[in-house]
Write a protein that binds this DNA or RNA. Structure first.
Lengths: 353, 353
DNA sequence: GTGAAAGCGCTAACAG
DNA sequence: CTGTTAGCGCTTTCAC
């Protein structure tokens, strides 16, 4: 049913080559087509609803304008990430969206599909499944597909990583709390299988800030298996109870709690209101991430935000896509990962002490 | 750089045809290849990192396994929608994600791209820009691309629409409030250019419930231009002030307010806490949508939710993709739109009176 | 059992 | 200024 160049050429009694040139108005070399022909052809093409078959063009030119986006899951914040990608993709590029929902097998098949579609570039959130590393290597080394990663590195493959500055998130947060006069600052984290690098950096930032200030650290780490919907209300309840129990049992209670993630803070806010613990009077609370709800007046959570012009997820998406576009255009990578800066935002869940 | 069948055939001294058959292990007709050949070829293909070029296959077969997803914007809730799509797309399908950010011109070019890529199916949120209708028609009528719409109809094109039951959202909500004993129920809405159909149905549902009960209606509609980030904190402030002012000035104040959208309710919660209006003691508040935050204990908003197994956006995505897959497989559409059922969820922002 | 040839839609080279 | 030819990578007849 699609209209082809051949159909137009038959309709007009011209050769396909002429039609092809006329449609794109290509004055290649010295051979200018007559303006009448060009007009006639373009007019006819429009009338017949002709849409060039990108598949054919890509096949012929061995290049495409499609980029693959491979994500581990579609959850809260993904929309901002995708929005960031869109900001930097050129207007002529389209993107495939692939999601593997934390399944290594799916990650593999989605990646195979993207390679099969001969994407000209790739943005991926690697799962960590070692059996898939060779496929990523194939994509980059054999198929020469420029690859930019987010969230975590792919071991053995030297490609750019774009991420938030996890180390400074906790470092600056702890420092900010210290400056408010807090001495006993607890750090609570819920780690997911997906983010071990992140947790590691978070812990280190916190330690450094505490040790530099000569303060004692107090850390409370919990596990949460299953990344799907982990942030939805209720799914963090057990971890939050654990954190609050730890706090309640402290002989010398911390005056501030710094948590891994805003969503954890939201749950703690709930828990505290049930427990009759007033925030920030009884306890200062700080999150990380600055998700939409944190700036919402009703919540007004102190947190660590992107220091850039957009929310962190958007920044990551934007920078990742920007770099990818450069690589696709043949540019060189300077070899450095992009660590996006953060800043502390003090709102009303923290107080001076 | 990509590995081709020809390379494999050269490597092995076989013909491309044999290799092609062996790779897919196709025993077409009676001509079974010798198992040794099959093994040898498959082994070699694996070793060489062969990935079939989908572009070539699609071109040859005039079919593809890519579906186009065209959205007006990427905002809060889009991730659930996309997740819903993914749930129903077959594992062999990939999707293009196109976003036009409310710009008619962009909608056109993205749609053209999708057609150019010869997607086998299309899910679209039409912008309402009449100049683009003919292109949608071209896609469906000329290119025979099955199309499923979400959010709004495309005038003049008889294709399925998947949406939430807007009418019953307000109808059931108003009824629920009546059952709690409320007589004076205000309905406040912030309408966007994008959603006139929705607003219309919302109003009608509310009216019906009030008139059936013999109660007087009180409606307060505000405009909010620019759909991008309309829900972010602060962007609804003016509208919310207007709504609260209307309420404060009522001679006989409404005991309940029903709003168009949970996010509006969140803002009202903030506004009320600043104004010293207690919810639900002074005023019962009900939203529509049941977004993640509504079920969050700290908010606990009474609202209208999906009556299905998943949140509304996910349901819409799931059902839209499911129907599309049926159409792609050659199935017939029964001609009816899919209106997804809703239910009232009473939480703690409403009280009996 | 395997190979040769044609063609999907398009464009680049080269003739005319 | 326009037409002919060849070929991108793949699969499908149809011969051998």
């Amino acid at each position: 049913m699609p209209v082809t160049i051949k159909q137009i050429s038959n309709e007009l009694g011209l050769s396909p080559a002429t039609v092809s040139l006329a449609i794109r108005n290509k004055k290649a070399g010295k051979k200018r087509l007559s303006p009448e022909t060009v007009n006639l052809v373009q007019e006819t093409a429009r009338r017949m609803g002709y849409r060039p078959n990108t598949l054919a063009t890509s096949l012929l030119s061995s290049t495409s304008t499609t980029v693959g986006v491979l994500l581990g899951s579609l959850s809260f914040g993904s929309e901002s990430l995708l929005d960031g990608f869109k900001m930097s993709f050129g207007p002529d590029y389209t993107s495939f969206l692939s999601v593997y929902n934390g399944e290594g097998q799916r990650e593999k098949s989605e990646l195979e599909m993207l390679i099969g579609h001969r994407v000209c570039g790739l943005i991926a959130a690697f799962s960590g499944a070692s059996e898939n590393i060779s496929l990523y290597k194939d994509a980059v080394l054999r198929y020469k597909i420029p690859l930019v990663t987010i969230e975590r590195q792919i071991p053995g493959l030297h490609v750019p990583l774009i991420r938030s500055d996890h180390f400074n998130s906790t470092y600056l947060a702890a420092r900010a709390l210290q400056e408010l006069g807090h001495k006993r600052i607890m750090y609570a984290s819920v780690s997911f299988s997906v983010s071990s690098e992140m947790s590691e950096l978070h812990s280190r930032g916190y330690y450094k800030a505490m040790h530099e200030a000569g303060l004692e650290d107090c850390i409370c780490v919990n596990e949460r298996r299953g990344i799907k919907d982990w942030y939805k209300s209720g799914n963090l309840r057990a971890q939050v109870s654990e954190i609050m129990k730890t706090w309640l049992l402290q002989k010398d209670r911390s005056t501030a709690v710094l948590v891994d993630h805003d969503w954890l803070a939201y749950e703690i806010l709930s828990e505290c209101s049930e427990l009759g613990i007033r925030i920030p009077e009884d306890l200062s609370l700080m999150g990380i991430g600055d998700y939409v709800f944190s700036s919402f007046p009703y919540v007004n959570l102190s947190t660590v935000a992107s220091a850039g012009d957009y929310p962190m997820q958007t920044m990551i998406g934007r920078e990742a896509a920007k770099l990818l576009m450069q690589l696709v255009a043949g540019g060189e990578w300077d070899g450095n990962d992009i660590i996006l800066p953060v800043k502390v935002v003090l709102r009303s869940t923290t107080r001076e002490i």
